[in-house]
Nucleic acid binder design. Sequence first.
DNA 1: TTGTATGCGTTATCAA
DNA 2: TTGATAACGCATACAA
Lengths: 344, 344
Amino acid sequence: MKRKITLKHIARELDVSISTVSKALKNSEEIGRDTKDKIQAFAKLYNYRPNNIAISLKNKRTKNIGVIIPDIVHHFFTTVFRGIEHYANARGYNVIVCVSDESFDKEVINMEMLANGSIDGFIMALSAETQLKNDYNHLKEVTEQGIPLVLFDRVTDEIQCDKVIINDEEAAYRAVENLIELGRKKIALVTTENYLNVSAKRAEGYRRALKDNNISFDENLVLQLPYQMEEESMSEAFFKNQKFDALLCVNEIFAVKCMGLARKYNKRVPQDMACIGFTDGILSKYSTPSLTSVDQHGELMGETAAQMLIDKIESDHGENDEEQFETKIISATLIERGSTLSNS
Amino acid sequence: MKRKITLKHIARELDVSISTVSKALKNSEEIGRDTKDKIQAFAKLYNYRPNNIAISLKNKRTKNIGVIIPDIVHHFFTTVFRGIEHYANARGYNVIVCVSDESFDKEVINMEMLANGSIDGFIMALSAETQLKNDYNHLKEVTEQGIPLVLFDRVTDEIQCDKVIINDEEAAYRAVENLIELGRKKIALVTTENYLNVSAKRAEGYRRALKDNNISFDENLVLQLPYQMEEESMSEAFFKNQKFDALLCVNEIFAVKCMGLARKYNKRVPQDMACIGFTDGILSKYSTPSLTSVDQHGELMGETAAQMLIDKIESDHGENDEEQFETKIISATLIERGSTLSNS
DNA sequence: TTGTATGCGTTATCAA
DNA sequence: TTGATAACGCATACAA
């Protein structure tokens, strides 16, 4: 077993001091040609690599960023994560992921673990429970310690920090307008409980679009499902009792499920019921018919968040001057497919 | 800004030595009641937390594990990751993820970065390119350094280490038998290039099942698609030219795409063409018809891998005795749905 | 009961 | 041109 070699080993072996070795390996001008050559050759031979941990301790920089997301088996978060990972890697950072499982406690525990020196900054999306409790003390503590934080997608106004979001309200607005342009009059909304701020935003856009187009808002056309829509009864009843010719769903699973129900109740998609979902994931692409959906550009969001974070981390000498925070808005785009276009 | 406090701060503030503080906070019996109380109170007040990095350096244990996977926007890997993350967290470990993007070079770079002290062990699935090149020197180096490694799913015989796999060959065998029991005679296989060892295994199972049931193997009934099946021409031709009444696909995307093609060529699923896929992901559940598929139990695989890894890490005093490696096999199970069951 | 010294691996300052 | 020393934050063997 070839154990990792350290500066000390090299120094001892070559009968020089540790600091000489250190300098030689950094190609310092201070060290003589011969000594440098000798040391460098030896280091290469034994494949010397500096120990990251020691360097972290010395520099007070880990080159790690912490990512905390509610769920990992989830197309959108996964996409964002990919963007973060790519960008971070390109700038020499590694990514430590913790999954909160939509739990407040886990979110808090994970943050505290990582905040004790393991990472240089956080990127996170709030768990559902955190948003429900409206308790952000763990975020406050972290920012007060001077650890940079970037929130994405599931954000809160309670915390002053960089943020990356999509224009949910407007995306929903445009989706509904799109349906109206297709001649739809009775447009239903399928959403989650309102404490998820993205859902709330989307509902606002939905209402505003109706209003701007002189369609009166009908509460009966809003179906609010629990986040993990497991039992079908609510949606079954909705399909039985309500009349509508179009559907806006706040995620693609709801949308695909609803298209299934439409089939069951003999509504053709898109002829009798057009359908638009949020999250342009794998389901949208491969469902039958394929689903028109709002692409949230997760990868771009991730890259953007990572860039904001790393920029802040690396400019952190300015701990005195007034902190300036930014909220970047990623423009969602509508990908039109079979569920609204009859010629597909 | 409340900067992180250290032992040294406390010591200075309370006019005691650093080691006294250290012991007091560990509730050591050596320290007097009063001093202990004083120190503990102070530490609590200022929310003292030991610095992870310093502890890592001291203990030569990071409590981090490195996970390297080919892709993160991928249901199966994501599921495995969840299992790893859950288990690791429960045992006090954090997870650093690197994505190889199916690239050999990235895999190597990522491993080397993490191997320099950032992690206590690796869990990984080989990238496609690595399997294609058949070059495992980066894995060898890591294991030779005494860093524990667990491979899962995409493994290789070239490396001696712990492994977790599913019984791919048998799962495919059983899937085909299932189709035969349903009365299917001409069963096609849709697979990827063979350098992906899982695909190869599945193809073996397919052939063995045919043989055991006296169905002659017909090369024309095997469709081999590039990994990222973007152009449709090959599969279109296949559907036009070949006759078959059942399909085994090595992943769910292929399966769903094929069901789409079946529709296009007026084959009813499952009546005219039954279909089974691998990876019981979101597509299988929500496709129309829903897809019968082989559940690889990714989460269990992840937990198992994490357990093997952490057990090895924590038993690592035994660096002298002969290393014993294990390969655990997770039993895949067939989830029957609409694509093989006509009554659904 | 408390404190001193040393080490983990590295870098940086200063002295030789 | 090289080396001794201190420091990063913590833990511990050993002294006092």
